[in-house]
Computed example of a mutant assay.
Amino acid sequence: MKERGTILAGFSDVTAIQCALLAKGGMSSLAAPMLYSEFGKTKPDQVSCRQFVEALTNPNLTINIADASLTSVNLPSIL
Score class of each variant (00 low, 15 high):
7 I>H: 02
37 S>H: 06
21 L>Q: 02
65 I>P: 05
16 A>N: 05
6 T>Y: 02
73 V>Y: 11
40 G>Y: 15
77 S>Y: 10
15 T>R: 04
34 M>A: 14
28 S>G: 13
18 Q>S: 08
1 M>H: 00
16 A>Q: 06
46 Q>E: 12
74 N>T: 04
11 F>Q: 04
42 T>K: 09
64 N>E: 14
6 T>E: 00
55 A>R: 11
3 E>H: 02
72 S>Y: 15
43 K>F: 13
48 S>P: 07
44 P>L: 03
66 A>C: 11
9 A>R: 07
76 P>Y: 12
49 C>R: 08
26 G>Y: 01
45 D>Y: 13
1 M>D: 00
51 Q>R: 14
78 I>D: 06
33 P>K: 11
51 Q>K: 13
33 P>E: 12
36 Y>M: 01
2 K>E: 04
22 L>W: 11
16 A>Y: 12
61 L>W: 15
10 G>N: 10
14 V>T: 08
37 S>R: 08
40 G>N: 10
40 G>E: 04
8 L>F: 08
32 A>V: 05
31 A>W: 15
45 D>W: 03
43 K>Y: 14
22 L>F: 09
11 F>N: 01
49 C>M: 11
68 A>R: 07
12 S>N: 02
51 Q>L: 15
40 G>A: 09
34 M>E: 10
10 G>K: 05
27 M>L: 11
47 V>W: 09
11 F>R: 09
54 E>S: 13
32 A>L: 01
28 S>Q: 03
40 G>C: 08
8 L>T: 01
16 A>M: 07
4 R>T: 06
15 T>G: 00
27 M>E: 10
32 A>D: 00
17 I>S: 04
7 I>W: 03
57 T>I: 14
4 R>N: 09
15 T>M: 01
32 A>I: 03
77 S>G: 05
9 A>Q: 05
8 L>H: 00
14 V>E: 06
3 E>F: 11
69 S>E: 10
76 P>A: 10
69 S>H: 14
79 L>K: 11
74 N>L: 10
54 E>K: 14
27 M>Q: 05
67 D>V: 04
57 T>C: 12
66 A>G: 12
26 G>D: 03
13 D>V: 09
50 R>G: 05
4 R>H: 10
58 N>C: 09
78 I>E: 05
56 L>S: 02
42 T>Q: 13
3 E>T: 06
20 A>T: 03
72 S>E: 14
62 T>F: 12
79 L>G: 07
63 I>W: 14
18 Q>K: 09
28 S>R: 09
73 V>W: 12
63 I>N: 13
79 L>M: 09
34 M>L: 08
70 L>G: 08
17 I>R: 04
77 S>D: 12
26 G>N: 03
39 F>D: 04
62 T>C: 03
66 A>T: 07
39 F>M: 06
40 G>R: 04
63 I>K: 14
50 R>T: 05
29 S>H: 05
20 A>D: 01
10 G>L: 03
28 S>Y: 06
11 F>V: 02
43 K>W: 15
9 A>D: 05
44 P>S: 01
63 I>A: 13
46 Q>S: 12
15 T>P: 00
32 A>G: 02
32 A>N: 04
14 V>A: 11
7 I>V: 08
